[in-house]
Design a protein around this nucleic acid. Structure first.
Lengths: 167, 167
DNA sequence: ATAAACTTTCAATAATTATTGAAAGTTTAA
DNA sequence: TTAAACTTTCAATAATTATTGAAAGTTTAT
């Protein structure tokens, strides 16, 4: 496998993995491209490399900026805008975990709390609903807290955590 | 919010959350319905409650069984098949984490290893590709190992882990 | 062996989601 | 101020993914 093949393979794998971290294919591919690039890229260059339209590039760059993963670079003497992504994988993981928590997990926790708080009318089915959604609420909340805590640690959280947990 | 409202809200929220644990809407809704039910349900009952077709129900039940989340119950004297889901949320989390690791994370780790192992031709861009994909490989592998380890612990892994990590 | 009761399969269709591209909008240089 | 260089928006379209429903398949009771 040469450079070009490796690059293509990485970008397409990362793209199709997008779902795992909750973003779409183009978004993930743009991020992957920037992640490998040794210099900031313009919209033109991104479109060209990934063979996607200007509109698509613009919209997905915007989303990546909303996530806080990509930033605009201003390059003196250049009219175009240039983009870079966070290069540190742990910082990247931190941002993604935090955003998914905020966007998806927190709202679900709220629903689970509401649902598990309905009045107990004494019937078996109501008792079951309360019991099960409460269990799910507690699990989700704890897992969410754990991920956020892990991910908000300083440098090298993964290694540190593993050491603490499994030594 | 009464029982029926709470039930509907839970099922639809859990359904749209499907993406977060990597399954589709109908699949998640069927699981949610079984999760609340105090008794095994037939295909007929599931179709009826969720208003989905026989084919859809059959296919999604099959997938849930492939995941190991739902099991067929044999009820003496009944011709129909009945279904139940794992009711313990921690066991559920264990199964989901394990399956996602096997289906999605492990294959990505393999690609990252391959890509990060290309020959270093000394160019800047190749060095960057190797460095960055290696970092991603290590992070992904460590996170995967951690989740699997956590999730394979006996009873009460979340609580235990939290205690160990953050006391 | 047969037929009723039930489940699975899968081509057709519907619903959803992503992408395009051109018009509208914005910024900058002169 | 204007026009060139660039970006954003969004209605139309394409691609993908989910769902249906009826025919084919299977199992069970007699």
């Amino acid at each position: 496998m040469n450079y070009e093949e490796a690059k293509i393979k990485f970008i397409s794998t990362w793209g199709s993995l997008g779902t795992l971290w909750g973003i779409n294919k183009a978004m993930a591919q743009i991020q992957a491209l920037l992640f490998l690039s040794t210099k900031p890229l313009s919209m033109e260059e991104i479109m060209e490399e990934l063979k996607i339209s200007r509109g698509n590039t613009s919209m997905n760059l915007r989303q990546l900026m909303d996530w806080g993963i990509v930033t605009k670079e201003i390059i003196p003497g250049e009219r175009k805008e240039f983009f870079t992504t966070e290069k540190d994988v742990q910082e990247l993981a931190r941002i993604v975990a935090k955003e998914r928590s905020r966007r998806e997990i927190k709202p679900v926790i709220k629903v689970l709390r509401d649902v598990s708080s309905i009045e107990d009318d004494g019937t078996k089915k109501t008792k079951e609903l309360i019991k099960q959604t409460k269990a799910l609420h507690d699990l989700t909340e704890t897992a969410d807290a754990m991920i956020n805590k892990l991910v908000n640690q300083e440098q090298n959280w993964v290694t540190k955590s593993l050491l603490k947990l499994f030594k």
